[in-house]
Structure formats: structure tokens, C-alpha cells
Nucleic acid binder design. Structure first.
Lengths: 139, 139
DNA sequence: CTGACACATTAGAACAGTTCAAAGATTGGA
DNA sequence: TCCAATCTTTGAACTGTTCTAATGTGTCAG
């Protein structure tokens, strides 16, 4: 039982077969899947599941605060089930692989705050993962 | 003459009427326009300009390194002409207004680097701008 | 247990933002 | 002036996401 499924059950969320396979697709703390990848994984277990349900469910989980939505450089949104532990991301510019990293939140000095009420910070480190670095140098 | 146009001229870039109005639409260091906004602005000065040319030109400027592409939470890409001064962004979660802020780059500790070759960092501070904070509290 | 209502799911159409392709227009150099 | 290279245009195509309307399913009162 994943923490996500457990949390959902505690909330009394109606857990249908479709929702279960979608939540199971998001299992793990270091997963950053796009909607089509969630759809693929869910369909392996329940072939009748529809893409619309995947989108409905993901959006619902995001607005419940059970998933975080990450905007990737390509058009696709990604979903991160690790909402318990504050963290940032390290992304490979070539293959798009995304890892969680634990770093200090950067501070926004008061004189840069422009009167905003601050709600959060996201940091993305961009780089090249070992695999892609290897294939670049060999290319 | 904006720095952007000046830089382009120095590169010997063919400066047609269309490209000029597009570059002029990006004038200023604190502008973060989406493609459709650039299109609007450009069309005010040169009504025949086409959306495809706006996209072509923006993409070309990005690959020349004269504009930075920013991925916003909504689907649209934004373009930032301030490539000279390293900076991060402060974004209003309600209206989407985006401001430049100068803050220290966060560090990625070596033990979090996962063997990546680091290329850059982007930080986005999310908050509510004074205008939106006012209309929330009055709502 | 049954019926009814609320809610969930589905397929496909619709939509937004972006890219692509082919044809036409413009530019600069010989 | 003419040619070749490059730029621009229109409109179609494509991707990711949302919407709609019809159908299916779970739950709970009676």
C-alpha cells in the first residue's frame, strides 16, 4: 500500500478500480510522470481506463494537495507524489530525467519582494545526467 | 534603439520590417511576454505580420541566445529579453504577473548532484501581488 | 434488497498553443 | 537586371489538455 493510496483512503475518497490503478501508477516518492505515462501504466493493469479519467483524477489529486504539478520545459505537465518532503528538482536537459534534490530554499530579500505575499519557491537545477554526458562525448 | 535591436544589428542579422516590430515588442528589460502578446504588439505597428513569423522569429532569437524562454504554469511560453543580467522570477499565482528579482543562486550540494554536469539554475518565487491580495481580501 | 440519486467514467469532439509545409515575396550580390 | 538565398504568409497539422453528453456504478434510505 503506497502512502498516497493510504492518504486517499483516510480522506474517505471514493476508491474505484480506475482511481486505484492511477494512484498506483504514481507510487513511489521519486516519480515524475506526465499524464500520458500515467495513462500507459494504468492501462497495463486496467485496459479499459480512459485518458479522460486519468486527467480528471490527476487534477483532482492536485487540487486535494496530494500531488504536485510540475511544469516541464516541454509542453507536458508532470505529477509528483512527494508532497510531504519539501524538495527541488534536478533535470537533464537532454533526456528530461528529473530527480528530487534536497536543498535550502533560496531567500527573497525584502527589497526584492515588490509587496508580494510570498507563498512558495521552486528551484530547478538544469544539467546533463551521466548517461547523456557519456553519449555526447562519444558522439 | 533597444539593446536587443542593437545586438541583432551587430550580428548582421537581416532586419526586415517584421523582425523589427517583433524585436521592438520585446523592448525593455522587464518584459515577459507570451507569443500571442508579442503578436498583438507587433500587429499594432505592422498589421500584416503573421503569427508564424512571430513564432519563427522568437525561436530564432532563443536559439541565438538573445531571448530566454520561460515556461509558465499555464501552457504558454514566455520570452525574456534580459539575458545579460542573471536573475530569477517572482510570479503572481493569481494574475500571472512576472517580475525579475536578483537573488543569489541556490547551491546544489555535491552529495545531491547525482553525477550531473550542472548547467544552470532557475528559481521561481510564487506569491500574490499587491493588487491581487487586495481583491482577494475584499472578495 | 431495491430503487434512486449522486458521482464516476467513457469516447470523442473541441480547444489552445505551437510547429510544419508549400507557395509567394523580398533581399542583396553578381 | 536577374538569380539564388532567405523571409514571410496562409493554412493545415500536431500535441497536450479540457469539455460534453451519454452511460455506468456505488451508496444509502427505505
Amino acid at each position: 500500500m503506497t502512502p498516497l493510496l493510504e492518504r486517499l483512503r483516510h480522506r474517505g475518497w471514493r476508491l474505484t478500480a480506475q482511481r486505484r490503478v492511477i494512484a498506483e501508477a504514481m507510487a513511489g516518492d521519486h516519480v515524475h510522470l506526465a499524464a500520458d505515462e500515467v495513462f500507459e501504466r494504468a492501462r497495463e493493469r486496467l485496459p479499459e481506463v480512459s485518458l479522460a479519467t486519468v486527467y480528471n483524477t490527476l487534477n483532482e489529486l492536485v487540487s486535494m494537495g496530494e500531488l504536485a504539478e510540475i511544469t516541464h520545459t516541454d509542453g507536458r505537465k508532470r505529477y509528483d507524489p512527494n508532497v510531504a518532503e519539501p524538495h527541488h528538482h534536478l533535470v537533464c536537459v537532454d533526456c528530461g530525467e528529473m530527480l528530487d534534490v534536497i536543498t535550502e530554499d533560496p531567500r527573497l530579500p525584502t527589497d526584492q519582494q515588490h509587496g508580494f505575499e510570498l507563498l512558495g519557491v521552486e528551484t530547478t537545477f538544469r544539467g546533463r545526467c551521466p548517461d547523456c554526458a557519456a553519449s555526447v562525448s562519444s558522439a
